[in-house]
Design a protein around this nucleic acid. Structure first.
Lengths: 211, 211, 211, 211
DNA sequence: GATGAATGAGGTTTCATTCAT
DNA sequence: AATGAATGAAACCTCATTCAT
């Protein structure tokens, strides 16, 4: 019956979402308890509901806020420098993306999505439209530009999408989920560069056509 | 005497696991109900506990059964033909793996693991040891053989692991989770071959060293 | 200076009670939300508590204000004209009461009491003392006067109470709770007169005593 | 985690409904706690849900079981003896109904309905169709028969409905809700007879038309 | 006086697990 | 071996009430 806490700071929602990220990551969506989220945000259980209508709404807002950061960045990179140097553009995108994905906070949303999307059609659809589709568009455009310049092989962009997204995904999992002391992680910068090298190497035209 | 189609008691565990895959996939581990699993296995709720001690045990056994398949196959491929033709060995491994991963039933366990491992250390550890580590070992060995023969570049095997695992992961997600009618999937065979091409292309030495 | 239509601070309680009637009627006491009451009264949630200590207090005041209107009127009618014409007095009382009960606003309190009294002893006791007892007294007196004049049979007043209150209650429920399009309501005036006829008919002495 | 209690007796549902009646009566529907119902039924909270899907379902089944007992009886009485002796048929109906209504257990459902129907359209509709409409039909038929025989006045059946239902309603409330030690109840048999007398008196034709 | 953010007890409902039969 | 009734902990969400502003 009492009401102890001070007035609503404007960044309450932010704080709640931050707390939610942690709890979702630690327990998964279904096992995450609203009370735990509230406690970490420094407020009461009920107060969470002043800002978000349900646990599901919390998750959706979480995804909404983080989604597309990388896709947006990729589009920016392409718009800015793809015409000048497609290969370097890809390298920059990869550096940006790998670095982002290795940051606990930034990779949190994709990881949660991977976990929840299979049985949450709304989340899946939202992520597909906001992230996958836009990222795919950026990549497709980049490939086309590079191919037109003769810098890239003429590969199906869907393959490229899988070969670019994939290593980042794998890195996220190996760093955050399946890490083991005896399997040391490459450091992020090196990882980004080497993945970029690998992919670019796979993308450049072979001088003499294979057999 | 009526030959009532024998009690097939030995297939019980298998049937339960099959049912569990379906239910886990549809609802996620936390939301999966034991009663639903039992119903689909055609037995009673209590009977499940005659074969598996808990819901968690069910998941672990599931992982155990499907997990090593691909890693085992990879090791077999390497042992059998890596010395003779490393590139073709990798191509075969990729074909096998991509095909497997695009099969709903086979990719189910990895997908569930990706969803559950973040908050189920036992699952994570088991998967890491049974799948990641063994797959990594096969790949590392393959790279070493190929590098020694001059067929592959001398790349950090951890990068290769990420670049090989990754596209498959991405494919699984794009096929099973983020599929959309207007984003048609490449057909599995083509996909496997093109990913293999891409990775092999990234793995072969460049004729003239890049400046 | 703009004459903002004065702050009408004195009408506040009235406005709140009016809003409360609506909300209690629509949702029942337990499901009524203070915030909804506040909103309809055009003030904030907290402001309600400046006038009423609790939801229960709101209900009690509501009953207090409306209760006894009819009982008071009945007593007035009796005092004024029972000696002159008992039958007509009863007819007037019934007309007044039926008309009142068919008015949404006036019947609201009794309906709420009927709903809440069974599990709210204070409400029940209050209503019993303020309404039932006083109405009963008026009726008893009226019967006695009428019986002394030979205009009414000598009936147990408790029976009369039930036979007078009852049809009004039934009318309220049939009009406000169990109304159906295919069960058209008699119009209020007719209803009042016919009920009065019926009851008076039941109250007059039979010319020849029934065997 | 344990499971202590014995096998399901066939009358579990009955026991639960009995417990529910008590709790609903004491607290009203909204304030009734499932745990309390379970405790009184001698089972666990969860077990209630093996038999009823929700608290609302419990209420509906309660109403369903009790509803129409009286309406059914009324129809039976009319079918059996209305043609022979309409007045006595009405007297028998009233005796049956009053007796029933004064029984705590039997009047429970109507009282709950009166309390909940105003904000529970399904309950209201169900009760209207199962009880009001059928009771009304019985009464209408009875009046018509009686009027044809010249035993009853030709009164609007809707008035009769209100004048017959009403006194019973009033009796229920006065006996169960607004009872007070200093307002002694007429005993049920007498009450039934006197109400019947009163109503019949109101229903018989006046020998000479009132001026 | 007035506001509305905040609290937190409390209730319904679900479901993994047990065990009498 | 198999059943399925029963348990009870747990968790989401609501809302009357308070109080800092």
């Amino acid at each position: 019956m009492p009401a102890k806490r001070a007035r609503r700071p404007d960044d309450r929602p932010e704080e709640i979402l931050d707390a939610a990220i942690d709890v979702f990551l630690e327990n998964g969506f279904a096992a995450a308890r609203m009370e735990e989220i509230a406690k970490r945000a420094g407020i009461s259980k009920g107060a969470v509901y002043l800002y978000f209508n349900s646990k599901e709404a919390l998750l959706e807002e979480l995804v909404r806020r983080s989604a597309g950061r990388i896709a947006t960045a990729a589009n920016d990179f392409v718009a800015r420098s793809a015409a000048r140097d497609p290969a370097d553009t890809l390298r920059q995108i990869l550096r940006f993306a790998v670095r982002a994905m290795l940051d606990e906070k930034i990779s949190a949303a994709p990881r949660i999505v991977i976990a929840e999307a299979p049985h949450s059609p709304r989340i899946a659809a939202f992520y597909r439209d906001e992230v996958i589709r836009r990222g795919s568009a950026a990549l497709t455009q980049l490939i086309e530009i590079g191919a037109a310049q003769g810098v890239f092989r003429d590969v199906d962009p869907r393959i490229v999408l899988r070969c670019v997204m994939g290593p980042m995904l794998a890195s996220v999992l190996l760093h955050h989920v399946f890490a083991a002391p005896d399997m040391p992680q490459p450091d992020p910068e090196t990882l980004a560069d080497e993945i970029a090298d690998f992919i670019l190497n796979g993308l450049v035209p072979r001088p003499e056509a294979a057999s």
